[in-house]
Design a protein around this nucleic acid. Structure first.
Lengths: 220, 220
DNA sequence: AGATTCTCCCATAATTCTGCGGAAATCCTT
DNA sequence: AAGGATTTCCGCAGAATTATGGGAGAATCT
């Protein structure tokens, strides 16, 4: 779950946007003044959304301070004035975006999704932690407290499938397609079998069966 | 099939739009005055399309009254003036949209399709809040203050059915079709049973019995 | 090729879910 | 307030689904 800090002095719009963003499951903190927002920079939210026109502090000042603290933090700018938009585009936009007023809350949500996906995509080179387990996707290795555990290739495919979608239920159909490919035509009971083997090898992995639906990996 | 109520005092445009909308298979009722439309609010159409500029009643007044009756009813606004558009966006837009004059009837049809699909489809992303409960449709999870509650698949289907149609009464027939599918031929008493089970597990869900009709989920 | 591991599948056991009947409670109508 | 209609409640048996153990063949490795 991502944290989003929103800065907009129009309380009405602010309230509406917070509602929309929360509805997507994000944790939102909102500010109506630039100074208040500035003092929250150290909290390192995953994304800033800020209106350029603020009463107390120039929006561009705020951007500078955000970027000074962490260059990589993505920011979405809101502005009504074309010259602001031009100025923003002139900036070096790392993983940023802007949206011109007036806009539909929905449009903002779409942009937020894109930005977050791009900025916080599971890096292929990174690693995934789950309790005592550490998974190195590019090496196809999983360790339990530094101790490597041997998995067969299908077992590993299943693990990755679940580990990258923690909490989401997967139907046998989905698992079949993902692990076996869409040209497999045997019984879908092989999924049960694979799950059984993975459970045996990785006993601390909470692979929950959902009766009538499939399986899901419970968050550690 | 969806019912659409259209409010526009320009009789010519009105007639054209009705024709286009009906061509898509929707049931359309049209009004040329705000007052006439206002008195039809209780009929709960699936969608309102309304021109902000009306001779007798201010379009914004009408919106208020529609939303007061049912917050979730989607509305598509029609307006030529930019300041109206700004004002509309400032509103808390649930599942609404707007279209600026002049527009092609075809554009309107496209928007109607989108709105209806979004408003009356189970959300695959995001979450639904109901009092202390938070529902994650794509994860088939419901939490009460962060504490997960186990539901069987039918129980969950029922929950989603009601949670996406808060306030709307559902007949046993409708529930049977939605949860069991239209190839179920047993007694419709199973619905009562399922409702009982869901009530037991989710005691704070106000699943109201409508004697002789069915059930409905009262807004939290 | 031979050995070893992996995968699929079957049969059976264990588990979970659900429909149903009937009794009790509640609601509506007169 | 009575009486019929409707809904709720309860528990259980059977249905549906999943887990498990074991074996045969396929794939992989040496």
């Amino acid at each position: 779950m991502h944290t989003i800090y929103l800065v907009d002095d129009e309380v009405n719009l602010n309230r509406v946007l917070v509602k929309y963003l929360e509805q997507e499951g994000w944790q939102v903190k909102s500010f109506t003044s630039g100074e208040a927002a500035a003092s929250a920079i150290i909290e390192k939210p995953d994304l800033w959304i800020l209106d350029i026109m603020l009463p107390d502090l120039d929006g561009f000042q705020l951007i500078k301070r955000i970027k000074a603290h962490d260059e990589t933090t993505p920011v979405i700018f809101i502005s009504a004035r074309d010259e602001d938009i031009d100025k923003i585009i002139g900036l070096e936009m790392g993983s940023d975006d802007y949206i011109a007023k007036p806009f539909l809350p929905r449009e903002l949500v779409i942009r937020v999704k894109k930005i977050l996906a791009r900025a916080y995509a599971t890096p292929k080179t990174g690693l995934i932690r789950y309790g005592d387990y550490t998974i190195y996707p590019e090496k196809r290795i999983i360790e339990e407290n530094g101790q490597e555990i041997d998995l067969t290739s299908k077992e590993y495919d299943l693990l990755i499938l679940f580990a990258t979608q923690i909490g989401t239920p997967m139907s046998r159909e989905q698992i079949l397609v993902s692990v076996w490919g869409d040209d497999y035509f045997g019984s879908d009971r092989v999924v049960d079998d694979l799950v059984r083997r993975v459970r045996k090898k990785l006993s601390k992995l909470e692979l929950e069966t959902i009766y009538g639906i499939g399986y899901r990996l419970v968050a550690a």
